[in-house]
Design a protein around this nucleic acid. Sequence first.
DNA 1: AATGAATGAGAATTCATTCAT
DNA 2: GATGAATGAATTCTCATTCAT
Lengths: 226, 226, 226, 226
Amino acid sequence: MASDLRRARDEQRKERRRGELLSVAAALFVRKGYHATIISDIAAEARVGQGTVYRYFKDKRDILDHLFEELVHKVFEQFSEMTSRPPSNEAEYRAASVEALRKVVNVLDGERDLVHLIIREGPSIDREFGEKLAGLYERLAMLARYYLDNAIAGGFARQCDSKIVSQALIGIGVWMANLWCTGRLGDETPERVLSEIVDLAFEGFGQSGNANSLAGTHGHNNGGFD
Amino acid sequence: MASDLRRARDEQRKERRRGELLSVAAALFVRKGYHATIISDIAAEARVGQGTVYRYFKDKRDILDHLFEELVHKVFEQFSEMTSRPPSNEAEYRAASVEALRKVVNVLDGERDLVHLIIREGPSIDREFGEKLAGLYERLAMLARYYLDNAIAGGFARQCDSKIVSQALIGIGVWMANLWCTGRLGDETPERVLSEIVDLAFEGFGQSGNANSLAGTHGHNNGGFD
Amino acid sequence: MASDLRRARDEQRKERRRGELLSVAAALFVRKGYHATIISDIAAEARVGQGTVYRYFKDKRDILDHLFEELVHKVFEQFSEMTSRPPSNEAEYRAASVEALRKVVNVLDGERDLVHLIIREGPSIDREFGEKLAGLYERLAMLARYYLDNAIAGGFARQCDSKIVSQALIGIGVWMANLWCTGRLGDETPERVLSEIVDLAFEGFGQSGNANSLAGTHGHNNGGFD
Amino acid sequence: MASDLRRARDEQRKERRRGELLSVAAALFVRKGYHATIISDIAAEARVGQGTVYRYFKDKRDILDHLFEELVHKVFEQFSEMTSRPPSNEAEYRAASVEALRKVVNVLDGERDLVHLIIREGPSIDREFGEKLAGLYERLAMLARYYLDNAIAGGFARQCDSKIVSQALIGIGVWMANLWCTGRLGDETPERVLSEIVDLAFEGFGQSGNANSLAGTHGHNNGGFD
DNA sequence: AATGAATGAGAATTCATTCAT
DNA sequence: GATGAATGAATTCTCATTCAT
């Protein structure tokens, strides 16, 4: 029936406008900052009335939530197709790491502004959003830790505190992502960064083997902390 | 003279109250968030009138600036006394790294809330503050890079892109500092974290030597990026 | 279309409300004084929210600017239709003066409060407004001087310092306007005032001719001034 | 006794400081405007504490009152010594007018800023001050009218509405005083201005005698006013 | 559904005045 | 008497949200 067609068209138009509002808001949040961006900015930039914004989103915070979910969805979408067979030697582990990072980079590459926004503003929006973001980071850390534990158990990763190390890896990732989004990595290509980071993670920057390792000495030596 | 005594006492009281206001503000910024904290909160918590806050600080932003400068000052104070002789072998490098980190940890340990505040809110206050903070991180990265370059030149660090690696190290540091400040490191002691991180940085978590390194292969293989 | 009608109606309503706010503000400025009138007074008197005032005017100063421009516009509108042929004898000059003053009086009569407000508060609002007002007075003085110079050149006005005399005429005008607006002229009709002033300007109040004139003696006799 | 000397010295110092505060306040009122000048400006400029200002004056308004009274006192002081014999012919009238104006000018010359301040800000301070100032002007107008009525009665001034004409004369006086105080009279000397004004008042700027006078026709002709 | 005018709660900021020292 | 730190009432201005059209 005609009304079905019409309804479909309306639905489509609505979806398009919602997307338009999201992208306009993201751009403004990035440019002016989340707190400094006011609803009327978004409405004006999207060429709609202020009231219209409220037809699509509950409030400003709701817009950010949608942007966040969108990003999270895109990232995890990538991993849904990954083979879940865990690596059984260092070469496989390294290859899998590189593959996973490449996927992430590919997603983030198309959403630089959004990523920058989330990393920069996310922790300071409010307690709830901060915890949601921290939860995301935690999930990523758990993932990294899972693979690291597997490698340690399989004997192709050094004995180490996988909880700490996996967090450190996430720290590197978030930090580099942020630098890259804000253009502070200069002309380094993502691939270059990626390989350097994987090398650092697997080999460190030292020359020797395990000589002088401090690991394992803690507890015996508190290093002078009070 | 009496008036001198009076002036000295006034000066002292003023300094005490300024400090009181700063610490109250820091606590509130941490608890409620910078944006959600309003001047009257600070005044009420410090048991003074709103106007009094304005006698000591231009506005809310000015309070944060003072907190930031205070922290930066305390951190760099530690390094002013460090021997500047660069390490000449890996053991020295590692020892110097540990010593420097311990100093930083010692400072930050007394300012957990403040550190958390700056890391969390700093990037989203406004452009100016964000750049000031980024400048601090950049300085730290330069410092790390300087030592790394020295080690590479001296043959006791692996050939690597020191720009990327040093940034990664800063990323680890900021990340761990943040986790620690927010209590998300659980019962791990700073010393334990420190040694794990240094081990990771010097040796990586891999077992083998340089096997399978990706470094140097970039350019020949863009990894599928478009 | 319906939306056109709607827009037109909205436009009209907006214009009406703007006018309402202006007249309410003018009344309050006159009654309480500009500085003593606060935005919430205006909003309350106009039965609108405070925020609404800010939808129409940038701030209190902006309201005054609009009132001033409105008045200036109304005054000069009157002169746009006047014949520009300059008078060629004293009778014509006198008639033209009377006609011009009548026009001004007719305009001001409908805006007593506003005129009073501008004369009273104008000079003390701020430097900018003061200069704008002084500029208006200066324009009026130039106009008077132009006609006076013409009359002197034509031999139907006495030799005199037209710069000083024209300023004196403006002084009389502003002063009488102010007295009249504030009701301090009692039951004198504007027409009566007008004719007295014109007589004074053309003939002075003396009986004799030019006897005893001081004009032209300055320079020879500085009258004791140092 | 010593305490008498001391008391006298204290009294003197107090008077000096009071004068200092008044002159500092006047300068600030002129430069920044009465409303824009705050107590702490005055205190800072006079190099005293804010509280000290309140030892000498009740509040800001009180300072202005004192400045006003000071000026009024100085002006009327001049007239206290004037012979009170009224003029008996036009020449005497003219001479007396000139003499009186010269006295006024001599006083005002030393108080330009103060005069400017009073003329500019006086009417807008508050109702009370405005009325006080209007009262002063009214007194001056009464004085002028008294002499004018005397001259009309004596036959050496034209029949005219002395109420209106005397107000017009005050208008000229205040206007010229203001122009002069603000430097907008350029290089015209006070004496020059004075003589031009007296000429204008006694003779008008017209050439003819009473030709075309409108005076006396009012009432028969309302001039088109509605 | 779309609009944008209206709203008023809420936050920042100022400054006259008080008062302990 | 002098001081200037402290105060909080008062005012301006913003902006998220509602709602009549």
